[in-house]
Write a protein that binds this DNA or RNA. Structure first.
Lengths: 198, 198, 198, 198
DNA sequence: ACTGGCGGGACGTCCCGTTAGT
DNA sequence: ACTAACGGGACGTCCCGCCAGT
């Protein structure tokens, strides 16, 4: 009653992470469609039913559910940027801050995990919800920053431009492991910031 | 013997279109996963095997294959825009031209068909290839117009911004049938063109 | 140690009844197959494991176990009927007496619960045992009353006729809530009693 | 077009019968629940999917679908009985005629198949529909014979009595292979016919 | 003692490839 | 050429038994 003090909860979270880790590894190694839930279960040393206990569908194994939990931190940092910064500038500094907060080894781990869906078409479906939600959030934050409505066309446009640019560069990163997402995103957004594009 | 008389070809194309039309309708009505190939076959009055003769997988039913054929026309129009126009301006005029070339009743039909995948997550996977290809093409056209390399970060950025803005507004159109895609896209791109966003 | 104080017993019985009540309600609302044990557990606010502690299988949730306990009272009343009454007459009066012994609100509650299995095919399997047992008992009581063997064809026939008529009318009641089982059964049995049918 | 002349249809029917035959055999040998669809498929030398192509659910394997086809013959014979016969007499003669029409080896085969569900509780659910339909038909035929409405209580009662007696005796036959259903049913119904039971 | 978590396995749906029939 | 039939296999749901935690 009141938050499950511990051991059970902990093990649950551990199992969930374990299953997803193996799933993502197998998706990368063999492709999404070619990987069966049975294989994932075997790799994680659980029963197939257990996989479905933690993830409703196979697709959900590729969904980064903990992203939602990042939204509050993102909001904090973005909102905290100096008022004279435009939306693009604020986003650049937010991204820099959030990347800096991650320990180096965490960053490497995340890159593998979080960029996978960008290069596996089947996973877009499962992650579209997360993406849409992120877009909605960013739109609101931008609106607040420039003191307009989220439905304002200018707000929509700048938001979608930032999303487009960020996604584009991340897709390149996912395909090319030599690129560092942190700097790549920052540089790409810089292009947007400097003025009328090209 | 010799070149297909063309009649058979025509009938084949007709069947293919027929199957896809019914498939898309059912996807919209019932959702993608809930629609079975058998239902589609029944609706199109063919055998399930025939569906697979025309489309390799069920996913392919949701892919707008004829888009590739639009690329040449798109390239023509885009390239033909006045040299002093920037990429965004050139895209706006290209889009206007292409929309204008469509008969009104064709436009309505296309809206239904072509925007469907934007609101059905499972269909993103199948259409991602088309989208990526379109992005690549636009990137090259932009590069050529501004006389830089396609790999140039500025070229990438403006391309991805245009793609992001266009997709964003199309998603809104798909969800809100009152919006007219032609004007909505044009207005959204106008936001990008006018200068440093917001 | 020693006889259970009875308090624990009582609570147990209460829980069992509670679980079954919710199960039957859900079976009626959603159908048997569509109702999961988890839903039942949630409705009764217990853990799924607990459901299986009280009922061996899901099917058993639909079995009216307390019917066996009614057998002794039934036997008493049936045996106590005047000797000159035939089996059908004795059954009619027994049924009337037993119905009369129930408080009105109990009758309404029982109707809902006890007639459910008649209209849900999947529940026949679980309840067939109870039905067979009832048939066997009635057969013996009839045999005793007419002073013949239970295996006597005439005894079997009259027993099965009564069972058939009763079941038939109860199935009608289950489907048509306007009918009152007490009078409907009585009237139907009256048809059997009056002589060579039709 | 127009009734599938042959080979295909024939093979289909053959496969369906084959699967069901093996299923019923296994149900008898191992019990219903203990028999898996895989086992049935293996015994019939088909794939498990093929089983589900012919029978919607495992339960349906135990349903005697061809009974419906007997209804017309039954109606003919029953209706053709002399007008002065009462419903029970007409049913007795109908049953005798129908049994007589079967070749001896067919009778033996049918007994095995058709009486199985009576002793396997899980199968009652699947067969209840057939039973209910039979009851409805008999009710109508009786009503017509005695020139009353099918809803008339007397009609209902005599119908249900006949159904009850028949079922009861068939259950005994199913459990006791020494009994001959044809004569057992006839004798049991005779009890109903001779007058006020007992 | 009760409950939560997990295993194992059956069911039933669906996809899609192959083979054989018309 | 088109289609029906079937195979094989993945997915996802659900039941129910067991064991470990509180």
């Amino acid at each position: 009653m009141g938050g499950e003090p511990g051991l059970r909860e902990l093990k649950k979270a551990r199992t969930k992470t374990l299953i997803q880790r193996h799933a993502l590894r197998l998706f990368r190694e063999q492709g999404f469609a070619a990987t069966t839930v049975e294989q994932i279960a075997a790799a994680a040393e659980v029963a197939p039913s257990t996989v479905f206990r933690y993830f409703e569908t196979k697709d959900d194994l590729a969904v980064l559910a903990d992203y939602m939990s990042m939204h509050t931190r993102f909001t904090e940092v973005f909102t905290g940027q100096p008022a004279q910064l435009g939306p693009v500038g604020a986003l650049r500094r937010t991204v820099r801050t959030l990347f800096a907060e991650m320990a180096p080894e965490e960053r490497a781990a995340r890159y593998e995990r979080d960029l996978l869906w960008l290069v596996v078409p089947e996973l877009w479906g499962a992650n579209l919800g997360t993406l849409t939600e992120a877009r909605r959030l960013l739109c609101e934050l931008v609106a607040h920053r420039v003191d307009r409505e989220p439905a304002d066309p200018a707000v929509r446009a700048v938001t979608d431009a930032m999303v487009g640019v960020t996604l584009g560069v991340l897709m390149d990163c996912a395909r090319n492991p030599d690129l560092d997402p942190a700097t790549a995103v920052d540089e790409a957004l810089a292009q947007l910031e400097t003025g009328p594009p090209v």
